[in-house]
Amino acid sequence: MKRNVIRVALIIVLIALGVGLYVLGKNHKIFIDNKDTVLTNVQYFSENAFSVFIDGNEVVEVGKGKRKVVYSPGPWHTVRAIEKLPDGTTREIIGRFSLASGDTAIINLPVLASGKDGWLSIEGE
């Protein structure tokens, strides 16, 4: 009897481990849009290029009006966008978000740069 309990417990632990690994390692598609968009009746314009870091390692240059794709695993993410202003200075904004396993994220840079919410939209599977 005790043996069976241990066996069942072991199986449950392994399944939990499997689920944990799945969530930790599942790759997510993250779109980074530097595009004009409308949000709650407010227009946001894309004016400058951005250098974007996702989770500290994926560097992409997103030009005005462009969209780029980045892959990153795990549930918790940070986006660090450095806007290149026409006068040569830069402006940096940091956003954090979390994704469930099957999700794809779309980040809108102009909205993010403006400091308002709503820069992130998530599409489930």
Binding site: L14, L17, G18, L21, Y22, L24, G25, K26, N27, Y71, P73
Partner: peptide
């Protein structure tokens, strides 16, 4: 197929 990457991916492959 499940697109699990990195070390968690390797461990998951071993688990399966």
């Amino acid at each position: 197929d499940w697109e699990v990457v990195g070390i968690p991916g390797v461990l998951l492959a071993m688990l399966i």
